[in-house]
Amino acid sequence: MSFQLYLLRRILFVIPVCLGITLFAFVIANAVPADPITANLPQSALNNEEIIAAFRARWGLDQPPHIQYLTYLGNLLQGDLGTSIKTRNPVAEDIGKFLPATIELATVGIVFGIVFGVAFGVISAIWRNTLADYLVRILSLLGVSFPVFVLALVGLTVLHAQWRWVPGPGRLGVLLDDPPFVTGLFLIDSLLAGEYETFRDALSRLILPGLVLGLYVSGIIARITRSSLLNVLGLDYMRTARAKGLRERVTIWGHALPNALIPVVTVIGLSYSNLLSGAVLTESIFAWPGIGRYMFRASTSQDFPAIMGGSIVIALIYVGVNFVVDILYYFIDPRIRLA
């Protein structure tokens, strides 16, 4: 299959998924047994029919559901996600503010996750059933099963409050100003503006939460790397490679690992989407103004435009990362190119 055809097929596949997501988000948002009027109007206004009617009209709640959905879809196509009932800002603008914080954190987290996860997985597979293997397997089990908020709090208490190795919660020290907005990613914006102090602070504040998220996802990445690599190591062509006298390092990194990568990349993609959709607990503990906390607040106040806008953006992130993973498959695995 040519790359163009593969790409086209993947893109066409994305369209119905996106449409399905919007419909799903809409149905869920409308089906919950909560009333946006009681959630968003003051107690005193609830007896006032005029105020309630005005609220319904303003947010389109007086229309039948299918009209509400079509209107929403129409606006969505123009990039309009509606206006948040709570913050009264356009949802797209709110998400534009909160999403970069999450992207920055999730990216650092997944980098740590890949480094630790793949390294642990390879160590564990090569030295199978040795002490190293057992240690790695215990560690990865801990990574998967240990509550991330405990890890985060212990990290803050020990590494920040006691040892002072890392700075405290927050995306930037309170005495520093945000860098001028270009991408919303502090690391990039501060470099663009030449604010090196800000860059250093922002980077240092990413280490601990990134490490926590990284350890959290490294567990599953290590397990998948290990089992996939063990699978490949047992195949005939590995024996052939060794038989023809290749050095062990070359057999593993050059032949085994690339062929074991498909499930690993899939898991990395899923983990990354997972982190990008907002790690609510981690974001809360590190006072990180990310999309997870934005969505949490929106949910607790029945802010439907924000819930739907956020859900759609998060779903699109999943679709987007999956899409990238699909494209990576094409390059990693020649069999897909030939199919």
Binding site: L156, T157, R164, G168, P169, S284, A287
Partner: peptide
């Protein structure tokens, strides 16, 4: 804004 009280306690201890 530190939404998590436990984090507030840590930040107070560290002098943040």
């Amino acid at each position: 804004n530190i939404p998590e009280p436990a984090t507030q306690a840590v930040a107070l201890q560290s002098g943040e």
